[in-house]
Design a protein around this nucleic acid. Structure first.
Lengths: 208, 208
DNA sequence: CTTCATATATGAAATCGTTTCATCTTTATT
DNA sequence: AATAAAGATGAAACGATTTCATATATGAAG
């Protein structure tokens, strides 16, 4: 009996499908970087990648889901870079120095990701802040900031709300850093961001 | 000779037009508050207000412009409330106390504005951060934060970038405050926000 | 109070983007 | 080589945005 075809949300099983999915996300990232989120239309993504429009819907429930997936994969790549850079830190590094190092690495990685600001803004609109204490919409918090504090403050049970606050504020500061037109502006934003980060680190560590 | 009709971007001249424009913006705010930005469609706004769809385009260039205008007017109202509350502060009030007071007033006003978070997120997407040192997209910075520091730090020429940084970070913190589910969460977010504000005030004042 | 220029409003139709779905092709397995 | 499941297709349905030719309302001038 010829049953139904593969379910909608199925993870790709064939190599071909994995490549298709990746090319879709890459196209989204490129378009966002060059022309902004509004230029990301299903027809545009389809023609840029050479697939049919219908194909997009085999990988994402709708356009919004595609944009969110693009944010997640882009940021996941960025976070991997950060984690790799943190591996090299000696275990006895104090939290403050580690935080400064992490910020520097993140800023550098974000600079090399032109779609960063656009995808972040889109994510904020599509996944409005929710405080359910277990999952935030932003991978930067769950995958980078939270693990950082778990590693560097041993006995701590850091308040998730504080982490979200830190992550959200840092996010907007990074945005400003990325769009700063002159080198002097960048330096100023970076200095303020670093100061804020250290301020929050102290508050968080003090409470644990 | 029957020339062309009124230009597109013309400000309303008749009482009728002023009311129409206001009713459109009020409808947008209501829809955002109750069902989110995505529910704001031109047909929906038209039917909610009882005007024809075409009429919307006599007041706004397109749907995005309408949403941005809704943000601006909503926030302008909110800022007026804050300014009124600051009037009553004695002149000799120190900056720190004034800042705390301002924050409290703003949070209270934002709480009474259900469309706040939705419109803010939309504004961030539609008006990406630009650092041209003269105009930011966010009225909270230009109309509230900047005047505050001009009033409370006499000799200061505050760096606009610092103000943007402060405004952007505060904005995300206020978002978190508004969605905090429990009273305890709110209290925590508020305490952190206040601490951050005072931290920044000190940095800004110190440099002037 | 009539006229007339201009402001404001209308809504059907053009346009464009999203989404569905019946059908076709490819892949991997036997 | 046969076959079942995965993957891909693209025309068509749907829905939202936007335009525009036309109609009505307003207020100032006579």
């Amino acid at each position: 009996m010829k049953e139904d075809t593969a379910p909608k949300g199925a993870r790709p099983r064939q190599q071909r499908a994995i490549e298709t999915r990746a090319s879709l996300l890459a196209a989204v990232e490129t378009i966002v970087a060059e022309e902004g989120t509004q230029a990301v239309t299903t027809t545009r993504v389809a023609s840029d990648t050479g697939v049919a429009v219908g194909t997009i819907y085999r990988y994402f429930a709708d356009r919004d889901a595609m944009l969110l997936a693009a944010y997640d994969t882009t940021v996941a790549r960025l976070i991997d870079t950060c984690h790799a850079a943190l591996e090299n830190l000696p275990d006895e590094t104090p939290v403050e120095a580690a935080a400064q190092h992490l910020l520097g690495v993140y800023l550098e990685a974000a600079e090399a990701t032109p779609a960063h600001a656009g995808l972040l803004a889109t994510m904020r609109l599509l996944r409005p802040i929710e405080v359910d204490r277990s999952s935030t919409g932003d991978r930067v918090i769950t995958d980078l900031v939270a693990p950082f504090f778990e590693r560097f403050t041993r006995e701590a049970n850091v308040n998730p709300l504080q982490l979200q606050l830190l992550g959200a504020a840092l996010g907007t500061m990074v945005d400003l850093y990325l769009v700063a037109p002159t080198q002097a502006d960048r330096a100023l934003v970076r200095a303020e961001t670093e100061a804020f980060l250290l301020f929050m680190v102290e508050r968080i560590v003090k409470e644990s």
